[in-house]
């Protein structure tokens, strides 16, 4: 009996676990050869762009050369840093409020099918309406400070987190619930030990999409009104036709976006890789 255990190949199973999830697909372990190819293509694309823009003498206000953008980023960074901070304050505050509200609402609403049916249309309206459109209205009411931005971000993040988390909480596996009940688990224990971990992969998907939407809304709201934040810098630079600086801000924003993705990828890999 004991000698008949099938051999387990670790690399194989691990690979399946990582590449199988929507959350974690895209980044994986790369071999040295793959890294070399990735770097070569990057150099080719950026270098090629630099060369073409230089060779055809494309004016800066149409598209600045990558080297000029990099130089502008380095030069302007001390000036941009406080604005980066302002944007992060809006994003993180709005995200935290929206995400917590979204998760709590999802956990409660999925317990009561009727409530869920009543609430879902409103959530869908919130998901599909660009919250950016509300910013001028919010500014009228709350002024040019952080408040309208944080509200807009929370409104963009919350429904997105809620709708995904609700999908997660709705995935009830009756056998697993029965298992917990057979050991006399309380409703609270069932929530924390069965429902929540089962919903976690979907919650993470919601948080990731929510944070990206939050970033879009932050920048958009800063462009609409108020004198600070990276979005405000975009409007300022473009109105002065400072295109290298403008693209430097864009570059900074894409770096933030990628960082958000990487953070959730790592969280997903650690806590949700059981799902294949």
């Amino acid at each position: 009996m004991t000698d008949a255990i099938p051999e387990f190949k670790k690399t194989e199973a691990t690979k399946v676990g990582i590449t199988g999830s929507a959350l974690t697909a895209g980044i994986g372990s790369a071999t040295r050869k793959e890294i070399a190819i990735i770097l070569a293509v990057a150099v080719l694309v950026i270098g090629g762009l630099e060369f073409v823009l230089w060779a055809y003498d494309v004016p800066q206000y149409i598209l600045p050369r990558p080297s000029l953008i990099a130089a502008a980023l380095v030069k302007e960074f001390p000036l941009l840093l406080p604005h980066l901070g302002y944007s992060m304050v809006s994003l993180l505050s709005g995200f935290t409020i929206g995400a917590v509200t979204g998760m709590v609402m999802a956990a409660i609403v999925t317990q009561y099918p009727l409530v869920e049916k009543v609430v879902t249309p409103y959530i869908l309206v919130l998901v599909t309406t660009p919250m950016l459109a509300l910013v001028p209205l919010l500014i009228l009411r709350f002024g040019f400070g952080y408040t309208p931005r944080i509200i807009a971000v929370a409104l963009a993040v919350g429904p997105m987190v809620m709708i995904n988390a609700a999908t997660g909480f709705r995935r009830t596996d009756s056998a697993k619930l029965a298992l917990a009940r057979s050991y006399g688990a309380s409703t609270l224990q069932i929530f924390w030990k069965i429902r929540a971990p089962m919903a976690l992969p979907m919650i993470l998907v919601g948080l990731m999409i929510g944070s990206i939407f939050g970033l879009l809304t932050t920048v958009g709201a800063e462009m609409v009104g108020g004198g600070f934040g990276l979005g405000n810098r975009l409007t300022t630079y473009s109105s002065m036709i400072n295109m290298p600086e403008f693209f430097a801000v864009i570059l900074l924003l894409s770096i933030i976006g990628i960082l958000i993705y990487v953070i959730f990828f790592l969280i997903g890999k650690k806590w949700a890789s059981w799902e294949t």
Partner: peptide, 13 residues
């Protein structure tokens, strides 16, 4: 009373 389910029913996480 102990219970063994259809398919192991281990918690995958």
């Amino acid at each position: 009373i102990g219970l063994v389910f259809q398919e192991a029913n281990l918690l995958p996480w």
